[in-house]
Design a binder for these strands. Structure first.
Lengths: 221, 221
DNA sequence: ATGTCAAATAATATCGATATTTTTGGAGAT
DNA sequence: ATCTCCAAAAATATCGATATTATTTGACAT
């Protein structure tokens, strides 16, 4: 009955709740890169036991958001320009593969999903930045998920998350909106709906390279 | 003092020991795909506590060798022809990227490492299959690691392991030796030493495709 | 016989406590 | 003053026990 007397009964398991919360905190920079993650400290922050915290940290290790130093605990993964550039490189490579495969499998149901996700993203952009982030990721993943390649999708999702972390760290997570992102998304969507693989991948990669250059320039601080 | 009274004092932490052992058992098929991994059962097998076992299983989840079913424990990752083909596809893609980057960074130290690893692999092929496996992986990773792209290397290593799992499952881990693997390795090595990226990647991918076809044909059981 | 529901069983998830290990801080020697 | 080494403190890793949750078993009604 201990697990139920906190604010609400929203999460199923304490581990999963801790995982979600810690992930959020690392992605947004609330837990800064390189910071030591002491079990006791987090135990207090999430008011749960040591076991769920430990297990959540273990899971975050898979996502490369947390580093485990044998016998010396955990810490938030460090960041570097090098690391950022590798993420960008891999995303371009893997997402191109995934998008082309998605288009090769194109069918009406997928196109419907795309249009829907795109619509939701537009709507969410008027709400908070947090809602937009979720919808934005959903749109991008929808572009790729018709590839039916679960491993590849997993990698793309991981790299996506690692990338938005840099966005948050560089600019509080919203300044990139200044550019005309909406138009870029439209280009990608239209090309995908027309099954034009070359054009779609070109727009997608340009989309990433542009944000990449912007962030890279900001990173010499 | 409980952790020290087993056979020897070989491993640093109980978690890491359990991780290594479980990984081995899943890769070799000793723990068959899809098998339920009960904590109690494993606790007995590894004679350690429940916490290290749980944590080891969490870590293996990152490697995609174990699946976590929320609130319902863990099980060895299932296998399928589909999954195998995806692994092959991704390996060809990612290793080509890594190998080209490695060659682009080529220097004498790297060439020395390659030659050495290749030599060790040849020597190890006379020993047990287990030694050869290790040396074989070391050689292949040495081909890639001069890319200086840690994320990419991590993915390649993961996919390598997933792949050898299929090899063990299909043929007990040694029948693939019948083909003239030594010659294939030599082609790759020579091309890499000559910095011929196109040739090296071609030989590498052929190497994988060939084992892939062999395993794929064996998999309709 | 078969399907459904409830009690019994088994397994997981979590907690609190303990043993190890790492880190810190300070006393003594050079 | 600075360095080394040892003791105190803190943090991690691990254990054993308990509370929760899933699964099985068997009785009852159809």
């Amino acid at each position: 009955m201990d697990a139920m007397l906190d604010t609400e009964g929203k999460e199923t398991s304490a581990t999963h709740g801790a995982y979600r919360r810690l992930r959020e905190m690392i992605l947004t920079g609330e837990l800064p890169p390189g910071q030591k993650l002491k079990i006791e400290q987090l135990r207090g922050l999430l008011n749960t036991g040591a076991s769920p915290v430990r297990e959540a940290l273990s899971l975050l290790t898979s996502d490369m958001l947390v580093e485990r130093i044998d016998q010396r605990g955990f810490r938030a993964a460090p960041v570097s320009k090098c690391n950022f550039e590798e993420i960008l490189l891999l995303r371009c490579n893997l997402e191109e593969t995934a998008l082309r495969a998605s288009i090769a499998n194109a069918d009406a149901a997928w196109e419907d999903r795309l249009v829907l996700r795109h619509h939701h993203m537009k709507k969410a952009s008027q709400n908070g930045a947090h809602d937009f982030e979720d919808a934005h990721k959903a749109f991008h993943m929808a572009l790729l998920d018709n590839s039916k390649l679960p491993l590849l999708l997993r990698y793309c999702s991981q790299l996506y998350d690692l990338n938005i972390r840099y966005r948050y760290l560089a600019a509080g997570g919203s300044s990139y909106k200044k550019r005309d992102i909406a138009a870029e998304h439209h280009h990608i969507l239209d090309a995908a709906l027309d099954h034009e693989a070359d054009s779609a991948t070109k727009h997608l990669i340009d989309h990433y390279r542009r944000t990449g250059e912007y962030l890279s320039s900001q990173m010499d601080s």
